[in-house]
């Protein structure tokens, strides 16, 4: 495991004692952590443990009800302006891609830059083509999402997020909905992105990817961070029983 050369000491996301309830159901029970600029954090844990909910609070797709989240110096509160600013800084990739089916791939990518960043159509399209090139799917630009494979769709989705030139990227199980043979093409793109110095929070069960890319692995269970450590320590020397059980179960598969 190589230490990431891009990681800095500046904190970019500060979470302090985050709580979240769905009605009476306590989903996040006080999460306190800090992510540094350029850091790659992999979040894992059993299904229903609150991983998705946690990363969705960071761009306010879910509202946290207690605690503080500060993203790049902006506090995430009820301030409409702050929410909009943070959403521009934070890109997100979903498990189900969530591409807009009525727009071509390239329009999917340019929508944000044109509508939110007020970029000219031309500049946005050039940038989008460059991104698609980087994702290795420049030839799919003018097709509709339904006309390309799942792996390609997910790469379009990554390009869509990157087009906003975010400082942080959130990935919520980006490969879970993919056929096995398509997983690696998406992971390759993410790996490349990691090397470029992007700050990344990745919910995934791809342990190989975690070992190779992550600076830190966080293990969630029942709404708390049970254990967090560098991947080498995490996988080879887990401290908690729940972590051990989880790792042994995941590696079996």
């Amino acid at each position: 495991m190589t230490e990431n050369e891009n990681i800095t000491n500046d904190p970019i996301i500060i979470c302090e004692d985050i709580h979240k309830w769905f009605d009476d159901f306590h989903v996040l029970k006080g999460i306190t952590t800090t992510f540094k600029k350029g850091e790659k954090a992999v979040i894992c844990g059993p299904s229903g443990s609150g991983k998705s909910t946690f990363i969705r609070t960071i761009n306010r797709l879910e509202e946290h009800q207690r605690g503080t989240i500060i993203v790049d110096g902006i506090e995430l509160s009820n301030d409409l302006r702050n929410i909009n600013l943070i959403r521009q800084e934070v890109g997100m990739v979903f498990q189900q891609f969530n591409l807009f089916p009525h727009l071509t791939n390239i329009k999917n990518i340019t929508l944000g830059p044109i509508q939110v960043r007020k970029m000219s159509k031309r500049a946005a399209e050039e940038a989008a083509l460059a991104l698609l090139e980087r994702m290795g799917i420049a030839d799919q630009a003018y097709k509709y999402p339904s006309e390309v494979s799942g792996g390609q769709q997910q790469r379009v989705a990554i390009a869509r997020a990157l087009a906003m030139e975010p400082k942080i990227m959130l990935f919520d199980e980006p490969t879970s909905a993919l056929d096995p043979e398509m997983i690696s093409e998406v992971l390759d793109v993410m790996r490349e992105l990691a090397h470029s110095g992007m700050t990344m929070l990745v919910v995934t069960h791809e342990m190989g990817f975690a070992r190779e890319v992550a600076d830190r692995v966080m293990f969630f269970d029942e709404g708390v961070v049970v254990e967090e450590a560098a991947p080498a320590d995490f996988f080879d020397n887990p401290q908690h029983d729940r972590t051990k059980l989880f790792i042994s179960q995941t590696l079996q598969h």
Binding site: G67, T68, E75, S77, N78, D79, L80, R81, N82
Partner: peptide, 18 residues
């Protein structure tokens, strides 16, 4: 959140806007 949220100008505060 507690200290900071009091500083939000009302015209940007989601709760107020709603």
């Amino acid at each position: 959140m507690a200290e900071n949220s009091t500083n939000i100008p009302f015209y940007r505060d989601i709760r107020f806007l709603k």
